[in-house]
Amino acid sequence: MRLPAVFNPYHDRCLTSDREDAPKIRRNNLVEYMRAAEGRVSSVWFGRDLGYRGGRRTGLALTDEQHLTAFSERYGGISVVKATCGPIVGERTATVVWGVIRQMPTPPFLWNVFPFHPHTPGDPMSNRCHTPSERRSCATLLSSLIDWLQPERIVAIGNDAYKGLTDMGYSATCVRHPSYGGQTDFIRGIREIYGLSSTDSLPHQQSLF
């Protein structure tokens, strides 16, 4: 899929930071992830879209390069590979999200309402909210994912993700996005949904798959 001012990490290569085979690496990361999750997850968490410091680089929603090892461990030791050159890059949202996932007995499946990285025209290292028409162009991907996973619970991270899901007819529970001062509310919201206490910290040491 090709769209103007949109980076598709499974097809496009960033000439600034990507390895030569980066799109193939990200496709393989995604395939390994989907194979590990099939029949084993009961929740899906939806972000809005991929960010330039996170999923644009890894091909994995809500996951930056700093958390690839944690990602692998939580999903049964699957092989996920860094697709870029140079130092590891982190993302604040991914850091908060993975801090919570480490406390959960079973990790959710992570995805985005718009599964690519929309950016300002002419500035690929920027983030913008995807448009309704861009979201509609990917609606069949989202519906196929939900039909495949059959999740018991759908969580929208932030109002933009919640609006995108409800506009497409899906019921979701909304938690505040962790950015712009929302970290505490996000953590509290997830703990309330899943009945986690502030002392729950051991499950991240176990592989659930």
Rank of each mutant, 00 (worst) to 15 (best):
H117I: 03
L50W: 01
A83C: 11
G86D: 06
P23E: 06
R102H: 14
L15R: 13
V100E: 07
L30Q: 07
T95K: 13
M104R: 13
H117C: 04
H117K: 05
F116V: 01
V89S: 11
R92Y: 14
S43M: 10
A61D: 00
I25K: 08
S79A: 14
F114W: 00
E73R: 15
V89H: 05
W98H: 15
H117N: 01
R57W: 04
A94R: 06
V44S: 04
R53V: 11
G99I: 07
V89D: 08
N29R: 08
G39I: 08
Y75M: 01
H67S: 09
S72H: 03
V100K: 08
L68M: 15
T93M: 14
G39M: 07
S79V: 13
N28D: 14
W111E: 04
R57T: 09
G59A: 05
G59K: 03
R53Y: 10
A83M: 08
V41S: 05
L30T: 01
S43K: 10
G39E: 08
N112F: 00
E38M: 12
R48Y: 06
P108V: 02
V44W: 03
V100G: 04
R26F: 11
P115M: 00
L62G: 00
S17Y: 13
G90A: 15
G76L: 01
E91F: 05
P105N: 15
R57Q: 03
I88H: 06
F114M: 02
R56K: 13
S79E: 15
R53G: 05
S79I: 09
G55W: 02
Y52F: 15
A22D: 04
P108N: 07
A36Y: 08
Y52M: 10
P23D: 04
P107V: 04
L62Y: 04
D18V: 07
T63I: 10
C85Q: 12
G86T: 07
W98R: 09
W45G: 00
A83Y: 08
R48M: 12
R74F: 11
P107L: 03
Q66F: 13
K82S: 12
R74L: 15
L30K: 11
Y75T: 00
I25M: 12
R53C: 10
K24V: 14
T69A: 13
S17H: 11
P105I: 06
A94Q: 07
V100S: 04
V97S: 07
E38K: 13
T16Y: 09
G86N: 06
G54S: 14
G90C: 07
P87F: 02
A36C: 07
Q103A: 14
Q66W: 13
T69L: 12
V41R: 03
H67E: 11
E38S: 12
D49T: 10
Y33M: 09
V113G: 02
G77R: 01
R102M: 15
N112S: 06
L68R: 04
S79M: 12
V96M: 05
R57P: 08
V31S: 12
I101Q: 08
V31A: 14
D49S: 15
R56L: 10
V89N: 05
I78L: 13
S79F: 09
M34T: 09
G77H: 00
V44P: 04
V31G: 02
W45E: 00
T16I: 12
Y33F: 15
A94L: 06
G39R: 00
G77M: 01
L50D: 02
T106W: 12
G55S: 03
N28H: 12
H67V: 11
V97E: 01
Y75C: 00
L50Q: 10
C85G: 09
R53E: 11
